[in-house]
C-alpha cells in the first residue's frame, strides 16, 4: 500500500529536508564560532535522478512520446533519504574570524525548509486520508 512512487519519493524528500533543517540549525548555533564553515545539504538533483532511474527501470513501461507525458510506471525507490543526501561544508568567509555563516541566508533557508517540509507532510497526510476513505474509515 505504501510502496508506490509518491510515498517513497515523499519519504526521501521529507528525510532530506529534515537533514537540511539540521544543517541550518547547526549553522545558526555556530554563528559566532570563529573559523566555522557552514554546512549545506543538497539532494534535489539526486532525488530527481533516482526517480527518473526508477521510471526507466519500470516493468510496465508505457511509451512516453512527449516530455509533458507522465510516466505511469512504478519507481524502485528505497525510501531511504541517505541515498540522495550529500553534505557539503565551506563557503566564502566574509568575516574576519573566518566564519562563513550568513544569518540572512540561514534564516531564509530555515523558512524555505520549514515550508517545503510542511507541504510534503500535508501531501502525505492527504494520501493517508485517501486510503482511509477507501477503507471506509472516517
Amino acid at each position: 500500500m505504501f510502496r508506490d512512487e509518491v510515498w517513497m519519493a515523499g519519504k526521501m524528500s521529507a528525510g532530506a529536508l529534515a537533514a537540511r533543517f539540521e544543517a541550518v540549525a547547526e549553522n545558526l548555533a555556530n554563528i559566532n564560532t570563529p573559523g566555522y564553515e557552514r554546512k549545506e545539504v543538497v539532494f534535489e538533483e539526486a532525488l530527481k535522478a533516482a526517480i527518473d532511474e526508477g521510471n526507466a527501470a519500470g516493468r510496465l513501461r508505457l511509451a512516453v512520446t512527449d516530455e509533458k507525458h507522465i510516466s505511469p510506471c512504478r519507481a524502485d525507490l528505497d525510501g531511504d533519504p541517505q541515498s540522495v543526501i550529500r553534505e557539503i561544508a565551506g563557503g566564502d568567509p566574509y568575516r574576519l574570524d573566518g566564519n562563513t555563516v550568513d544569518p540572512e541566508i540561514e534564516m531564509a533557508k530555515l523558512a524555505e525548509t520549514r515550508m517545503a517540509y510542511t507541504a510534503q507532510m500535508r501531501l502525505m497526510s492527504k494520501r493517508v486520508g485517501l486510503l482511509k476513505t477507501s477503507m471506509g474509515g472516517k
Partner: peptide, 26 residues
C-alpha cells in the same frame, strides 16, 4: 541577542515541522 533569537526561531520551526509530521497520524 540576535544569534539567540535566530536559534529560538529554529526551535519554533522545528515545532511547526513536527506538528505537520504528526498530522500523518490523522
Amino acid at each position: 541577542s540576535r544569534a539567540y533569537e535566530a536559534n529560538l526561531e529554529v526551535v519554533e520551526s522545528a515545532k511547526a515541522m513536527w506538528e505537520a509530521a504528526t498530522e500523518l497520524l490523522g
